[in-house]
Write a protein that binds this DNA or RNA. Structure first.
Lengths: 186, 186
DNA sequence: GTCTATAATACGATAGAC
DNA sequence: GTCTATCGTATTATAGAC
């Protein structure tokens, strides 16, 4: 795949994470990506909505892979989820609380404004939930429990990221890690 | 307090809820509020950041009062939180998944971009958490537990709203209600 | 208190050259 | 594939009349 195209998607992800959809301009994307200015509409002829939905799509693939790898480090599912969230907290802190999830803001901004982006967000959340569900199923949780719990894990991590970023403090994510471990250990 | 000023704040809340900070224009606020165009910079001389932070401040007062009232309907704290979340789900659905929380998108968009708005969001989340913590303390939870759990309740409700809006389905919030009840009943 | 007009800038998107 | 120039329309904010 083209280098410029890839750079654009990566820069878009980082910017969406930091400032959302409407807060991110195409000029900014070109500048941050160090891609040729002429490449934007060459690789993404359908414009900003296309760039955004593809960036979200790609990021969910990368993130779900990271979840799988992270969860593989403990055989116990509850412990694995707990430790993974602590890693998320580290990353949020390392980014200076500028990053966390490229989905949250975009999903909320566009839920009723862009069919295309909403669909991308919906599938992205599904992909993330899958990664957790697989681990829970492998850990012996019955299917309906794994379904519910994996959704709850995704939801509370999202909430933890919001509170940690807003308070510029990783304690909220640490609390989410602890409480989820308790719930998953039942 | 002035009528126009109040209308502007209310309209701002609704728009922030639907499309976030950068997605909401001052022209749109004036139009939706049915307030005189000349009133915007008369009542809010410091512009968009002032309007936004005041809107968030006011909405957190209103919401925390609603939380207190909602939680008062059950004497059991776990049951009260559960039932309250089902009411949140109803409201999200009734709005056509356009509403939910005026904080989420704004908090994520502006976490590292506007000191003023970040501060307003931080205090707003604190206010919401307080409302839950009081109920937990009254329900006999020891102080550190009430602290952790009330934060976790806020985080997972936020996450549930995000997933429900994105999927245009109240099931995520219902799951959050159920799982939180389990955790709070331990 | 409210109005219009407008400044200054940014936006997304397109056209046409190379 | 990439460039520049530009269209049309938004944006936030201000100035000055009433």
């Amino acid at each position: 795949m083209s280098n410029a195209r890839e750079q654009i998607l990566q820069a878009t992800c980082a910017l969406l994470e930091k400032q959302g959809y409407h807060g991110t301009g195409l000029n900014e994307i070109v500048r941050e990506s160090h891609a040729p200015k002429g490449s934007l509409y060459y690789y993404f002829p359908e414009g900003k909505e296309q760039i955004t939905s593809e960036a979200i799509q790609q990021s969910s693939q990368v993130t779900s892979e990271r979840i799988r790898l992270g969860l593989a480090e403990s055989s116990d599912a509850a412990q694995a989820v707990h430790d993974f969230i602590l890693k998320v907290a580290e990353n949020v802190e390392l980014s200076g609380f500028a990053a966390g999830s490229p989905l949250t803001a975009v999903a909320m901004e566009t839920a009723t404004k862009s069919e295309r982006i909403n669909l991308a967000c919906r599938e992205a959340y599904g992909t993330l939930q899958n990664a957790f569900r697989e681990k829970l199923l492998a850990g012996g949780y019955p299917q309906p429990k794994a379904e519910e719990l994996s959704l709850f894990v995704v939801a509370s991590i999202e909430g933890g990221i919001i509170l940690s970023r807003t308070n510029r403090n990783v304690e909220p994510l640490r609390i989410v890690a602890r409480q989820l471990k308790i719930l998953l250990s039942l």
